[in-house]
Design a protein around this nucleic acid. Structure first.
Lengths: 252, 252
DNA sequence: CGCTTTGATTAACGCCGTTAATTGATTACG
DNA sequence: CGTAATCAATTAACGGCGTTAATCAAAGCG
């Protein structure tokens, strides 16, 4: 049986949240190097060691910040999908699904470009010493990362069930990959065929590559404004999942 | 008229190179946080302020490290392409080109996986305050980045001239993109049509996305070993540039 | 009331980038 | 040759960092 949280625990949780939000504000306003224990404490009218009541280390605090960012990104993308679906009432089902998928991808990009420091924190080079922890402690980062992945996976599954598109047969999938896809399917409790999961991951590679190149500025060697490349990517992505693209748009 | 470098200048350049190599060794052996002026100096039997004779700041030193890494990566990929070409003597021209292109991509991935810290440094989230400098100081980072890009661009151009593949006509390219592609073509002195450059950048997005997802571990939410995804990406990439894939391989 | 727990403090350690002042060696040249 | 200038390095110091230990005041509670 789970105990109801005491008043002190609630205060504690609230303070924890304040710390995370302060850290995010520093991240956004002054860059990643400004997210120091001392700066956060200063900002909150405390001293640095006080934060050790809430987090075991600077790195643990950062992992909670990452988790918070993942959660916000997930709800942002969910909202973008939801809004697009509302705006697409009356269209045929295939088109509604296309609108939702495109909106999810565009939402991901829009959030990223508005939150480059946060994006860097969750999708850039991993914090040193993070990977080892993946399986050890229950890391909030991992759970929230999964939660974000689920937004796209659910949408993708919805699309596949309503409007199945061509996917490779199990026998056409590299056995080494198929085994891992099966594990992933089990992990997520999905009921999609392996081929659909493979296509899902190919889409994720496309989306992540395009958006992170743009966010990190690694396309500036050629382009000042990589926005058209994103649309090109969508044009590549849509036929992979049986969607019409470009859509009949109602607004630019 | 350019003066011959004096003995002192040569010593200076040699020391500069030693510093950069020491920094890289620290990066590889002890991670990005270990690349501090003090640690580098310690490693070289000096004190930290001495390094200011060679670099104006810690960040400037890091930019030179980045440039050095770019240069090494470029020559690694060039060598991989060269070796593959040597091994493909006797095949038909289309197949030779395919072998070279695939070897370049595989070389890029292989180097990355063997040099994850270095890859993170040059292709991860940009160092804070870097982007503003792009146009101001002559930054070695930028030049060496271009030099790396040229490896693939040259190979790509070679391929297109020998075995033209379908590309979009100029009129089918988003005007906003076409203008930038024209600028890029001018910058690089290339003679490729805009459509080929567009295809080139789409390939770069695919390659970068796949490799960086793998290097940064952002695919571990689904796959322990993303290697099969790389081969899938190659299978997507090859038809974009008119190459047969999979190739008749001589060794796994 | 007294004891414990809680949440904070201050002081300190060793690290960092950076600057200023200084020192020793080497070079340049009158 | 001898002296002045230059160069490459040093030491000392500043402020900031993460982290730890010792301390302290208030709250909770028997």
């Amino acid at each position: 049986m789970v105990q109801a949280p005491s008043r002190r625990d609630r205060v504690r949780a609230a303070t924890t949240q304040e710390i995370i939000q302060t850290a995010r504000r520093l991240l956004v306003q002054q860059g990643p190097d400004a997210v120091s224990l001392r700066a956060i404490a200063r900002e909150m009218g405390m001293t640095a060691p006080a934060l050790y009541r809430y987090f075991g280390s600077h790195e643990e605090l950062l992992r909670h910040v990452v988790a918070d960012i993942f959660t916000e990104l997930a709800s942002y993308v969910r909202a973008a999908i939801h809004d697009a679906a509302a705006g697409a009432a009356g269209l045929r089902e295939a088109e509604v699904m296309a609108v939702k998928m495109i909106a999810g991808c565009r939402g991901f990009r829009a959030w990223t470009l508005e939150h480059v420091p946060e994006f860097s924190m969750i999708f850039g080079s991993p914090l040193p010493g993070l990977e080892v922890l993946r399986e050890v402690h229950r890391d909030p980062t991992v759970d929230c990362g999964y939660q974000f992945g689920r937004v796209f996976l659910d949408l993708f599954g919805d699309l596949y069930r309503r409007r199945p598109f061509p996917i490779p047969a199990d026998d056409d999938i590299d056995p080494a990959l198929a085994a891992q896809l099966a594990r992933y399917r089990e992990l997520t409790g999905s009921d999609l065929p392996l081929g659909a999961l493979q296509t899902f991951l190919r889409c994720w590679v496309l989306l992540y590559g395009t958006v992170s190149l743009e966010a990190f500025g690694h396309m500036r060697f050629a382009l000042d404004d990589p926005a058209p490349m994103f649309e090109l990517m969508l044009a590549d992505l849509a036929p992979m999942i049986g969607l019409p693209y470009p859509l009949p748009e109602r607004s630019g």
